[in-house]
Design a protein around this nucleic acid. Sequence first.
RNA 1: GCGGCCGUAGCUCAGUUGGUUAGAGCGCCAGAUUGUGAUUCUGGAUGUCGCCGGUUCAAUUCCGGUCGGCCGCCCCA
Length: 413
Amino acid sequence: MSKLQPVRGTHDLLPDEFRRFSHVVGTARDVARLYGYREMATPIFEFTELFARGIGEATDVVSKEMYTFSDRGNESLTLRPEYTAGICRAFVSNGELSQQLPLKVFAAGPMFRYERPQKGRQRQFHQIDIEVLGAPEPGADIEVISVAADILDRLGILERCVLKINSLGDPECRGVYRKVLVDYYSGHLDKLSEDSKSRLQRNPLRILDSKDEGDKAINAGAPSFADHLNQASRDFFATVKDGLVAAGIAFEVDPTLVRGLDYYTHTAFEFVTTHIGAQGTVLGGGRYDGLIAELGGPPTAGIGWAGGIERLMMLCNEPPAEPRPVVIAPLGAAAEARALGIARALRRQGITVEQDYRGNMKRRLQRANKLNARAAIIIGDDELARGVAQLKDFDSGDQREVALDALAGALKG
RNA sequence: GCGGCCGUAGCUCAGUUGGUUAGAGCGCCAGAUUGUGAUUCUGGAUGUCGCCGGUUCAAUUCCGGUCGGCCGCCCCA
């Protein structure tokens, strides 16, 4: 099997798989539309600077997972590793988007991250994405989570997921807490795992989520973020939680939930599942009120999430079956020519019709069977002369004669 | 980036304690009278045993490397 291989961590979406892919995206799009979100798209690559500044230089994503290259004009470009930064950039680039706040957008497309592939983790993967810009109110947090829950519900996977939420506070108390944490862990440096030592400067909040047994023991005595939230952050979080309850959305507060991207503030959340292996986060996001200003735009609040399409595909129900085609089987050159027009007329009526390019009757019916056709329209010289066709039903095996101009009616009825 | 498992026909897998033409099921192709599928019967084709190199008289079987997949860590969707 010395065949051409796709690049590591990429894969082809063959027709059967693509059907499930479109089902996920289509479902998400439909639900987002019900909430008034409008779809848009941004380029697959951006200036490297955008991600470095937006996501944070020190994050894993930026420091070791980006597909970065120089183009022929010597610009450093990067294949987008996530959607939020690009959408925020588009918001800043296109002044008209700020004329009607809040801006509510839906987007979907490929993302790229240089990681070790495993189940639910590829180098090119796809996300659906929702963002609300210009809404500092907790109502936006609630709505965005509600959209996610409805999408998961429609896909039939909500009951296999748990919604975890946490508050990362505002920059003020986040900074205070960060310092408190670093002080605390610095006192236990000798017992900290290697991973966590390196996390200490980079992202100390993440140590709280460590799976290392030694770290867990130290974490037991760690100061909690909840105790360090300022009043405004506390109130904000309480409103979000009350709203979720009012909307009938079940959740768990998880104080160890920390997002790896620097721009998050206040609400952070994830829908996680245990059904698809270690990469159990199916959809996650949060609030990023400082990001747009950080990128050089007007201070504008933001909140949103991204969902992994491949992960959702692993969990979701079979999409509805495609309509079964009708096959038109002409015999002879004259009938074949005539069939082209008949097939086209039927398709204009919304009937799926397949016409083979070659083959005798047996061959054509065999193929019809493989296509899971519901019926065949058989037209030979005899039928042609009389202006009729044999209409064969594949499920019952019955066959009857139908006038050519009555075909559409017969197939619809 | 770290650790572990794996790689035989289109698919799922068996097999060779190193030795002539590497197997099964499913699928695929052909036939069972002239214009009728699926079902049934008969016959057929499958493959550089992932790739490169080493050991050996001899390797798909042993060893090394490499590429790819899977599992866990890390990280995240």
